[in-house]
């Protein structure tokens, strides 16, 4: 495992820890999109099906379990925890996220590495992950008051796939791995969707101002 991959995974883990910290310590999910969190549950559930069939490493198995358990528990907190759920911005979080699922699935049926159940679901999870942040970005744009934990959560979540892009370049060059257009292009799209957010995040960080996205 190269340094970019490890940094990417750690950033991903960090983003989830930041979100859980917000939920546990502030007992709040204000500014967090349940739609995006539900999409992540679907992403992880379809991608990590192989947890029962294929063993890669202890690291790989533990990380998969962590991502599955944390994504399910975040959705549970937002839907069912009696304090946390009252802080959910239901009226602002109106992105019709189901409309992302069907096109991603159809695309995975059409464009995949191999036409098997596992490979199609794996591909679907990559396509869906690329766009899963959209409801969250829309909600942020509508939020007049983005707290630091929410801003940092989205920043780390975006940085993770960006670091994976370097991991793929490294693997292609150093390990002479195959061309892997499906994850590469999905990852590129995923990172590009954050471009606007990154711009305003870094700008507000430099000026030591509160993060606010233009409507």
């Amino acid at each position: 495992m190269n340094v970019f991959r490890l940094a990417g995974d750690m950033t991903h883990l960090l983003s989830i820890m930041v979100l859980l910290l917000k939920i546990h310590s502030m007992k709040s999910c204000a500014g967090i999109s349940l739609k995006t969190q539900e999409l992540y549950v679907l992403v992880f559930a379809t991608r990590y099906l192989d947890i029962f069939t294929t063993y890669f490493s202890f690291y790989n198995t533990v990380m998969k379990i962590v991502f599955l358990v944390t994504s399910f528990s975040i959705v549970w907190y937002m839907r069912h925890h009696k304090v946390v759920r009252q802080t959910y911005d239901r009226d602002q979080d109106t992105f019709r996220h189901h409309l992302l699922v069907i096109p991603c699935f159809l695309l995975a049926l059409l464009i995949n590495h191999r036409f098997t159940v596992r490979e199609v679901l794996w591909t679907f999870s990559l396509y869906l992950e690329a766009v899963a942040i959209l409801p969250q970005l829309v909600l942020l744009q509508r939020s007049r008051n983005i707290d630091n934990l929410t801003g940092n959560y989205v920043f780390f979540l975006g940085a993770y796939r960006g670091l994976y892009l370097f991991n793929w370049i490294y693997r292609y060059m150093a390990e002479k791995s195959q061309l892997r257009w499906i994850p590469w292009i999905s990852g590129l799209v995923q990172t590009a969707l954050y471009a606007d957010f990154f711009y305003y995040y870094i700008k507000s960080w430099k000026k030591r101002e509160k993060l606010q996205l233009p409507a």
Binding site: R5, D9, H12, D50, T53, T54, F56, S57, N60, M63, K64, F67, H113, R114, R118, E119, W122, Y164, N167, S177, Q178, R180, P183
Partner: peptide, 10 residues
């Protein structure tokens, strides 16, 4: 099962 390319990633 057979190990597919890239499935070692998260």
């Amino acid at each position: 099962g057979e190990v597919m390319v890239g499935h070692d990633e998260l």
